[in-house]
Every structure is written in C-alpha cells, then in structure tokens.
Design a protein around this nucleic acid. Structure first.
Length: 679
DNA sequence: CAAGTTGTAAACAAAA
DNA sequence: ATTTTGTTTACAACTT
C-alpha cells in the first residue's frame, strides 16, 4: 500500500525546503520598459502583396481586434460614466495613426434605462468609492498599455517582415506558424493584461483603501501561481500597504515572460509554448509597461485620480493647480452623492466586463495553445482545462465518487484556466505543484473554517495538487471529526489525507511523518487504546486552547481568506456588500444581457445557499470567506452579537464596510478555533 | 529580538 | 527482520 522510502524522503524533502527564495533570475524586461518606441510604426507597405505580408497583416489584424474590443469596452464605460458627456479625454498618449484611434472615437451610447438604473442604485461606502476610483485609473492605464503594446507589436511585425524578406522565401507552413505564434503572443499578452487588471480590481475593490494624502500604492507584481499561499502572500503584501520590495522575488518570472514574449522571437516563443510553467506565470504576470506608466504614482502627491494637473475622475477633467487643490476639488465635487455613486457602480460594471473579456480571451488562448501545442510538440500534453474547471466548480454534491483517482498527471500541468467565470470561493487550478515548493505558513489559525473550506473546495483539493491552507493539526482534527466515531487510526488518517487532497498523494513519507509528529506533539490529540489497536481522538478543549489568541487587525486574515477562495471571493464580497447595503441584487443588472455575469450570479447564489446549509447544519462556518452570503443577508447580522463564536465574521464585514478606512482589517475577532465548534 | 508556531527531517523504540 | 506506529529532538521558516 504505502511505499515511502528513506530516499524518497530525502530527495523530496530537499526540494521542499527551498521555497522561500524563489525566483532568482531577475530578468529585466528592457525592451518594453524603455518604451523605446517613439516613432510610429511606419505603414506596412513594403512587401507589396506577397504572402508573408498578407499573413503578417492577418496577425496584425488579430492584435488590432483585441485592442479594439478592449477599447470599445473602455470607451463604453467612459461614456457611461461621464453621462454622455463629451468623450474627450486627456490621454497622455497621442492617438496612434492606426485604426486604434478610430476605435477610440467610437462612441457607445448608454441607454436611458441603463442610466436610470445606475442612478437608482444607492450608496456605496466611501471606501468602496475610493477603491472603485482607482479602478478607473487602472483602466485608463490599461488602455495606454494596449496602445503601446500595439505600437510595439507593429514594429515587431515590421521587423519580422523584413527579416523574412531578407531570408528569402520561406516554406509556407513556417510562415504560418510564425503568424500563429505571433497572434498567440498577442493573445497571451492580452490575457495577461486582463488578468492583471482583474486582480487589480479585486485588490482594490476588496482590500485597498487609499487615503487621499497618501501616495498610491505601487503596483504589486502579481505572483505566478494561484495557489493559496501565493495569494495569501500577495494579499498580505497588498494589504500591508507599504513597501513592495520584498515581492521582487515574485515578479521575476513575470518579467521573464514578458520579455520572452515581446522582445524576442522564435526561440522564446517555442519555449513559451513548450513550457507550461512559463505560461502559467504569464497568466498573472505584470506588465512592464504598466509599471512604467504607473511610475508617476510613486512620487509624493500622486493620486490615482490626479494627474497632469487634472482631475481624472471620469468625466471631470477639472484643472487643479496642485495637489491640495485637487484634494479640495475631490472632496467638494466628488463627494459621496448619488452621482458619484452611480459612477462607481458603472465602474463596477466595467470590472465585470473586463472579467468577462478575460474569460473569453483565456478561452481563446486556450484554444490557441492547444492548437499550437498539438502541432508543434509532443502529443501527450492534451490540455484538459475544461474538465478541471467543471470539476472544480461548485459541485459540492459530487464527492465520494472516486477517491483515489488522480486526474492529472503531474507532468502535464494544465494550461491556464478560466477562474473568472467559475463560481466564487472555488480555488482555481493553475499552478498546481508546478509552482514548486513554497514554505509559507498558511496555518489555519486565522479564521478560515477548515470544514467549510474543504467542503467548498473538495473537488479542487482532490484533483489539484495544491496544499490545503491548513495546518496538519487542523487537518488531522478535521479527519477525525469527520469520522462517524470521531476517532481514527493513524492509517485511517493517512487515508483521509490522500483521499481528500491530491497534494498528499505525493511525498508520503514526509507528510506522514508530519502527521505522526503532530499527533504526538499536540496535546489535543489523544490516543485511545482500543480493542484492536489504538485510535486517535481530538480533545477539543485542548485544541481550542492551542490557539486562544484572537487575531485582531490582522491583515493575514484577509490574505488567508482570499487565498482559500481564490480571487473571486473578494469581488463577490465587495459586490454583495454593496448589494446588501442597497438591497438591490446586483446580479439582476449584471446578468442582463450578459450571460457570463449571469453565471457568476448564479454561482454566487449557489455558494450562498451552500453557505446557508453549512451554517444551518453543523459546520459552524462563520468564516470571513463566507462573507458574501452574510453580506447579502444582513439579517444574519442581528443574530448573535453576543456570541463571538458565530456572529462576528458576518457582522464585522457588513458593518465595517462603511465605517472605517481599514474595514478590510476588521474581520478579526473570530478565530477559526472559535468557529470550529463541535456540535 | 525573543518566544511561539508550524513544517520537515531524523533518530529511536515499541508494537505488529 | 521488516514495517508501522509513536515519541522525541533539532532546526528552519515564519508569526506575534
């Protein structure tokens, strides 16, 4: 049955150790960063009507289209926000003389009904407002990037074209592949941007509050994987709100990818395609141009809504001499009123749109990768993201089906998936174990109720080799408590681990040792002699005693919560918090004319139901992760302010959402230890 | 910085 | 004799 050997332990063990200092190769993405492109791409007219030219054009077209879509959306939002005001804006960048500029002019009219709807919707908390405002900023930046990128891409096309011409006639297929790869690059980059944008939005929506006087946060490089730990780390870094230095380790890979993708040609392309890890990284990678364009925020007196002496509130453009006057303007003109609120709401929809877009683009990318992969490399890596996605999604009904089945071969990490469209709170698979060993403490000591998390993401944990964000002790306890007799033999505990977590199907010697170690170490685990051997039980009192401290004002809370619920949850939390306040279900509006958002909505609902079940039954889940539901049902709030065990999570989320700038740090009191009562 | 937690490795012993 | 189970120590990484 179990065959762990000492050697296995050693090799694996050493591999596990080195996680914290990951990413040593710092590749500066020079090509993009410098933004050397000052010249406009010359018209593509040299190659006359030869085939290569046509194909290049084709690729260009793809890029153009992508860009166009993006901009149309943005444009639309702009229009909405500015309430049909003039579309003029102060882009720092001159419009390119490519169709892009045309796209930018295309106005998108908002229907009166929409506008009304927007206006009807009520108040957002100031924090939410601020957060949303930043999103606006981010969007504008994104647009700039796209333009820039487009420009560069054009240049590159030129270059390639020239090269090709120099090289003489090339086999047709080769050219085709090149074209495809080009398009693929575009797609990938596009997706990166979207992804990043998405995450940014989430960060801001959920977590960031920036004081007017305070310099805006530097852009956080996004980590490669989506595994809980990484996200935890990210969230923590983001929420801790200062110095981003220590994250340098994270962005290396992304820079790497960016470089590869944009500034070089054939070899890197293949490497990109062949190396799933790279693509995984890329999914979340930060764009160098972004950093560049954000850099202006770094100096003091910068504000997402202020730039070049102009208020950048959507549709405002009021000239403000200096920063103080801008602040004044901001407070007077964009105070918390219906209009601002409406604008923010629109912004929220922008974000949703982007998510939708991201999902689409990812799908496209997936198809492209599949296509190219099959074509260019070994056939073994048939991506199966769809399976994964579906299996990961909120199918809490499924479970015991095939405990030991191992859907993924570890050697074929799946291509990027589409987390956005998935149900909330479900961890998305991407990095899986490929992310490598990370030694981070994602203990359960915060308040992610293990039971609910596991239940929620059961399928995920079963299939993805992602380390569950709980300590061994908690897991062991969970295993024991899940058993009918509330007692398990060691071997049964082992089995539970392997059954529930794909992660624990590897390195058996290591984690088994850890399990034993924990059993022995913690007083909360009591060995009981039995007729046929011994079983382990949990001394709940001891277990609670183990971590008596409540964590207050602990940012790691949030990160933890985020981590275990991927980054869908914060969005939902924020959305629904506002929904709760307004008692207007946002998904009503969201799902209108937007199937994906509709799905999201239903997913949310489903999750809420699930959460309900949990709370109603036994599991004692008052996790902050569950916050969406609590936000939607503010009624819950009233239930038990006296009982810290259950009440505080929901309560604090809803209430704190509108009382202090650091509302995101407030869900502190309830501790998972507290939550995890036993019936 | 110290103390506490957690995870990993490993030595060792008793039981199966 | 080997494996499993359990205990203990040590240490690194991390948090408080």
């Amino acid at each position: 049955m179990m065959q762990e050997s000492g050697t296995e332990t050693k090799t694996n063990g050493s591999a596990i150790q080195n996680g914290s200092s990951s990413g040593n190769h710092l590749l500066e993405c020079g090509a993009l960063r410098e933004g050397r492109s000052n010249g406009e791409a010359p018209a593509v007219d040299l190659g006359a009507a030869d085939l290569a030219h046509a194909q290049q054009q084709q690729a260009l077209q793809v890029a153009r289209q992508l860009l166009l879509q993006q901009q149309q959306q943005q444009q639309q939002q702009q229009q909405q926000v500015s309430g049909l005001k003039s579309p003029k804006r102060n882009d720092k960048q001159p419009a390119l003389q490519v169709p892009v500029s045309v796209a930018m002019m295309t106005p998108q009219v908002i229907t009166p009904q929409q506008m009304q709807q927007i206006l009807q919707q009520q108040v957002l908390s100031p924090q939410q407002l601020q957060v949303l405002l930043q999103q606006q900023q981010a969007l504008m930046l994104q647009q700039q990037q796209l333009q820039e990128f487009y420009k560069k891409q054009q240049e590159q096309l030129q270059l390639q074209l020239l090269q090709q011409q120099h090289a003489g006639k090339q086999p047709k297929e080769q050219q085709q592949v090149a074209t495809q790869q080009l398009a693929f690059q575009q797609q990938l980059l596009q997706m990166q941007q979207l992804q990043q944008q998405h995450l940014l939005s989430l960060q801001r929506q959920g977590l960031l509050t920036i004081q007017p006087g305070q310099p805006a946060l530097p852009l956080q490089p996004l980590p490669q994987g989506m595994i809980p730990t990484e996200l935890q780390q990210l969230w923590k870094e983001v929420t801790s709100a200062h110095t981003a230095e220590e994250t340098t380790g994270n962005n290396h890979s992304s820079l790497d990818l960016t470089t590869t993708c944009v500034s070089s040609s054939a070899p890197s392309k293949t490497s990109l395609i062949m190396n799933p890890h790279a693509s995984t990284n890329g999914q979340l990678s930060v764009h160098t141009p972004k950093r560049e364009s954000m850099s202006h925020e770094e100096h003091p007196h910068s504000h997402p809504l202020y730039g070049h002496g102009v208020c950048k509130w959507p549709g405002c453009e009021a000239v403000c001499e200096d920063f103080p006057s801008f602040l004044k303007h901001l407070n007077s003109e964009h105070a918390l009123d219906d209009r601002s609120t409406a604008q923010c709401r629109v912004q929220m929809q922008v974000v949703q749109q982007l998510e939708l877009q991201l999902a689409k683009d990812k799908e496209r990318l997936q198809a492209m990768m599949t296509h190219l992969h099959v074509k260019s490399t070994e056939p073994k890596a048939a991506p199966q993201p769809l399976n994964l996605v579906s299996s990961v999604t909120l199918s809490k009904s499924a479970s015991e089906a095939s405990p030991q089945s191992l859907p993924h071969t570890p050697t074929t990490p799946t291509a990027p998936l589409t987390p956005v469209t998935q149900g909330p709170s479900v961890i998305t698979t991407t990095s899986m174990h490929t992310v490598g060993p990370i030694r981070r403490r994602y203990s359960d000591k915060y308040n992610v109720p293990i039971s609910s998390d596991i239940a929620q993401n059961q399928e995920f944990y079963k299939n993805a080799e992602v380390r569950p964000p709980f300590t061994y002790a908690s897991l062991i306890r969970q295993a024991i408590l899940e058993s009918p007799e509330k007692q398990l033999t060691l071997n049964e505990i082992y089995n539970w681990f392997t059954r529930m977590f794909a992660y624990f199907r590897r390195n058996a010697a290591t984690w088994k040792n850890a399990v034993r170690h924990n059993l022995s170490l913690h007083k909360c685990f009591v060995r009981v002699e039995n007729v046929k051997g011994a079983v382990w039980t949990v001394d709940e009192v001891e277990f609670q005693k183990r971590r008596p401290q409540k964590i207050s004002g602990n940012p790691s809370l949030i990160k933890n919560m985020q981590s275990s619920h991927a980054y869908c949850t914060p969005l939902n939390a924020a959305l629904q918090a506002s929904m709760a306040e307004n008692s207007i279900p946002l998904y009503t509006t969201a799902s209108m004319g937007n199937p994906t958002l509709g799905n999201l909505a239903s997913a949310i609902r489903e999750e809420l139901n699930g959460a309900m079940e949990h709370t109603n039954s036994n599991e004692s889940d008052s996790s902050p992760g569950r916050s969406p539901m609590q936000a939607v049902h503010p009624v819950h709030v009233k239930e038990e302010p006296l009982d810290p065990e259950e009440a505080e999570g929901p309560l604090s989320l809803v209430t704190t959402a509108n009382h202090s700038p650091d509302f995101d740090h407030d869900r502190d009191y309830e501790d998972e230890a507290v939550n995890e009562d036993i019936e």
